[in-house]
Design a protein around this nucleic acid. Structure first.
Lengths: 207, 207
DNA sequence: GCCTAGATGTCACTGACTGCCATATTGGCA
DNA sequence: TGCCAATATGGCAGTCAGTGACATCTAGGC
């Protein structure tokens, strides 16, 4: 029974993901066309061919239909970080974890990368989305200490959080520079991003 | 004419500030009593003796009636930073600016500090307020580069922003530790905060 | 081809926030 | 003192995000 329901869930999960992507694409087009504020959820739902109520079954907020982690990057990051020893936790550890995720993100052909850049541009241009994206980063930086070390002291928890926040800042800056960078004549967008990320990390060290 | 209106504005501004404080106090009590989400703006307005419409003339959002900078700290910080040379802009510059603001905040007797701690605790306990507070910090980190250097390059603008974000992170951590610290037997709350802040800055250097 | 879980739609509702217009207050001036 | 004009306030109607409840529909497994 459990196996059956899980397999069914697997099929349904794929469908759900497909619907999510459809809604997101409809939303992105409307936001790019008319702006985030001027677009209502009802319009997005209509464009995606679902009811407004269904929209909120897929995304908890209007912002989240842009920011939702469709490709499981958060999970990939956590997997990378679980291998790290919480006692000797340094900035380099998260940096390499992020690096691995960004590299894998490069492997998955440019369609995903293009969508990401589209989203990133929209986020940069929309205050409400910037705030929501920021909230996501911060949520991460508060969840990860709990996930990493259970027996660590309060002092080291703060240390871990600081390290994570700085790593998040690096990623944010890298994504921003990447989104602002010239689109013309880009053969390897993901690699490009990786180079920008490394550069930002290097600059961070010269603080 | 201009002088007159400014003097009138001065008197009215003081009244407006008084009303703002009244609304904020009413809001704080209700939030502490029933929680942020469970409290409606209508209830706050009623408790403060104004109409709901007037509430939104004083604060743009429900969150802002907690976070609004009643004491002009942002302005004080900007004043401290204006004296800095944008070309040789280091983390220590913002740190000392924040330090000066926090110290001045200590001078103004403990009533202000107590209110701040109250607010800080509420913010920590309320996700919606945490996000809004975060947004404020980030807005600052995007405005200050423009304010500091007009002729600086894009590269140094990013550098300035990074420095500011790190400084903001230090302040956030310090405020959090301060709010979480024991209330019992505190003679000098502001000085206490200053010590915590210095400690956080020192720890940040060991990243 | 039925049976049930999960997906979807509809409806009604709350609550934040805004624009508009009428009214009340108040500081400054004749 | 009493009027004028700027400003503050209230009331009202409306938009829109988000939620709960209930009915219906769909599709996978037997």
């Amino acid at each position: 029974m459990i196996d059956t329901s899980q397999q069914v869930g697997d099929l349904r999960a794929r469908r759900r993901n497909a619907t999510r992507i459809e809604i997101q694409q409809a939303a992105l087009e409307l936001f790019e066309e008319n702006g985030f504020e001027a677009t209502t959820v009802d319009e997005i739902a209509a464009a995606a061919g679902v009811s407004p109520r269904t929209f909120f079954r897929y995304f908890p907020t209007k912002e989240e239909c842009v920011l939702f982690d469709l490709y499981g990057f958060d999970e990939a990051l956590e997997a990378c970080l679980r291998a790290v020893d919480p006692e000797h936790f340094a900035l380099a550890d998260i940096e390499s974890a992020y690096r691995a995720v960004i590299a894998g993100f490069d492997d998955q052909r440019s369609e995903v990368a293009a969508n990401f850049k589209r989203i990133q541009k929209l986020v940069l241009a929309t205050p409400a989305l910037s705030r929501a994206a920021l909230g996501r980063y911060t949520d991460k930086s508060r969840q990860l200490p709990d996930l990493l070390g259970t027996g660590t002291s309060a002092r080291s928890r703060v240390h871990i959080r600081m390290v994570i926040e700085i790593a998040n800042l690096e990623v944010q800056c890298a994504f921003e520079e990447w989104a602002e960078s010239d689109d013309t004549a880009e053969d390897e967008p993901g690699h490009e991003l990786l180079a920008i990320y490394d550069d930002v990390c290097a600059r961070m060290r010269t603080l």
